[in-house]
Design a binder for these strands. Structure first.
Lengths: 350, 350
DNA sequence: GAATAAACTTGGAGCGCTCCAAAAAAGTGT
DNA sequence: ACACTTTTTTGGAGCGCTCCAAGTTTATTC
């Protein structure tokens, strides 16, 4: 039994002269085993170079992986998540909950084609899914009969979800700028397909419905409401959709809409793009133009000027999501509150 | 067979009137199955709500998890890795290789006590271990008979390792500063236990050996050599050991060693601490004091002034480590080259 | 249409483990 | 020493799957 094959419980039992069950107990419930027997088994294990039960067997038997999977939204790879400040803080929160639970965090990849098979095959006890309303994905996850939580997307009362109150956040952002006296707004929204920024000119029908996901939609609604409250219509506000990572957003803003004094965004990242472009053009923020970010990432506090932004507890969201997966209780839909943190990127218009 | 239990391959086979093997083939090698049979099986699967083979069975049978584990060094948690710029870039590299290989990246936690059991139990095909010379950990990893790579620590010819040429990096840093005319050096080294900075005054024996790990040791050697080449001795240079994350390092430097004009560090992070403290005290860098970082994280380019730093390809290192795990070939010990990137934080002494 | 080749299907043999009911051993009290 | 309780140990029964050699069916050839 020693052909350099890795030894098994049974091998150890054979050498120690006890049954498999006893060897298993030595490793998992040592208190149930008489001390002398335990020592004999440990000696046998040592001799064979056996280092404890192989997790594969346990997994099959118990059905538990002691791990949760985090799947980035849409076409994002794990690398994109780690690269982005938002993704990073989210994963940080998830990892904190995993630390507490002693669980492993599996970052699972899914290109658009492989997402469902990944869901089917991942070695995890549950999932956290990035924002996505992809019904196939949800179906796959449900089929797997594993707990899962969807972020930033409400998929109905039977499905765990956590999202922020983006509508209120958007509303606060507009209200803040309006209170400062701004009347010329511009919105940076999120383009869900790849490609250059798409510019929606004012007055061409209701553009709010161009939102790809619930996340954008809610925020646009909030913007619309906030504008309505100061007798403006979102239909008169230009909307630029940019893909995450798009660097030219700022240039488009200043090239095409020099009259705008208040820029509303859907992410700190977009806001920072505008800040960078402003520096390049010698446009002073907030003197010439005010900018409001979204998410309140750590980065937003370190820009010059620091960003006024709709803030929420990103890491807390990740952590809560993981906890919900671990608990595996009744489905809940949680809406987290947001807060407008006013910093240096907003001021009254000139 | 329908007691709301999750269906298995056998259940599907029973309904479709074929054997388990055929059902397995439908999902894994559909080309081997006659189309009409395949359809029958697929219909049965659909009817039962069977969504493909359970990964647990496959894992036991095949022995492969299709995942690699990343274990942070020493007492770090996953969260610490994600928080730190260096850890983040490293994980980014690992994740890129995982993306390419279609594998999952498991971030496994190990507190000091649970590290070896984590190694024993993680559901992975191999490991990347943060820098550590902990022999128990290496033994555990070897026992598991899984490929693994150790970062920043050479554990001998039988063990995969990747590290940077820290000695040369350190040497370059000193040479650069010496060429600028500096004679009053100070070294920020790494404290491996928790607690406040430890100050090693000059002239009190050979302090280089206080290094906890190979990483520090090599760099101290490099510093020593560089100093020797300009007729200085490391024994005359103060060394301050700080824990990663320690914020007071900069204060200790300026409080205790105002005569130092050239600060050598072991991480960008330490260097940034010094920069921050300098701003607080109105000390101009590089006019009053020059600072050299280590690692060349993305952050180092964005500080004010941008940091002169010993740079290496952090993400590349992570990626290579993952590739070595996937390849599982002959053990290799790789030393990656470093480069001194001169930016704004160094200048001739006043 | 029989012989031969090709295509497809089958089901046994595990993979390594843990649970659990039952058996065995050890301990207790009279 | 015996009956009875408590502590330990045992080994069968899977967990769900894939491989593979062997068997069966279908297609091709003469």
């Amino acid at each position: 039994m020693n052909h350099s094959k890795t030894p098994t419980l049974a091998d150890v039992g054979r050498v120690a002269g006890v049954s498999r069950g006893t060897v298993s107990n030595v490793f998992n419930h040592p208190d149930l085993v008489r001390p002398d027997v335990r020592e004999r088994v440990e000696a046998a294990a040592q001799q064979l170079g056996y280092d404890g039960p192989d997790p594969r067997g346990r997994v099959l038997r118990d059905g538990k992986f002691n791990a949760i999977g985090f799947m980035p939204p849409g076409a994002y790879a794990i690398a994109d998540v780690i690269r982005s400040p938002y993704g990073r803080e989210l994963v940080l929160g998830v990892s904190l909950a995993c630390d507490e639970a002693g669980a492993t965090l599996s970052l699972v990849n899914g290109t658009d084609e492989t997402r469902t098979s990944t869901i089917r095959e991942a070695l995890v006890d549950g999932f956290i899914l990035g924002h996505s309303v992809d019904i196939d994905l949800i179906t796959s996850a449900q089929r797997r009969r594993l707990p899962f939580v969807i972020l930033e997307s409400d998929a109905g009362p039977d499905i765990n979800s956590i999202r922020i109150d983006g509508r209120s956040g958007a509303l606060m952002a507009v209200a803040h700028l309006a209170a400062l006296g701004h009347r010329h707004f511009l919105i940076l929204s999120i383009r869900r397909t790849s490609g250059p920024p798409i510019v929606h000119m004012p007055g061409k029908g209701k553009r709010a419905i161009t939102a790809g996901f619930q996340l954008d939609y809610e925020r646009l609604e909030g913007f619309a409401q906030g504008l309505a409250e100061v007798n403006l219509s979102i239909d008169d506000v230009p909307i630029i959709e940019t893909t995450p990572g798009e660097l030219s957003a700022g240039a488009v803003v200043f090239d095409r809409f020099p009259e705008a004094t208040a820029i509303l965004t859907m992410s700190d990242w977009q806001a920072i793009t505008v800040l960078d472009e402003a520096v390049r053009r010698g446009i002073n923020i907030p003197d010439h133009v005010s900018v409001v970010g979204f998410d309140g990432t750590a980065e937003s506090a370190r820009t010059t000027p620091p960003l006024t932004t709709v803030t929420h507890d990103i890491a807390g969201k990740g952590r809560l999501a993981a906890q919900m997966v671990f608990e595996n209780g009744q489905p809940r839909q949680i809406i987290m509150s947001v807060e407008l943190v006013v910093r240096g990127s907003t001021a009254p218009p000139r």
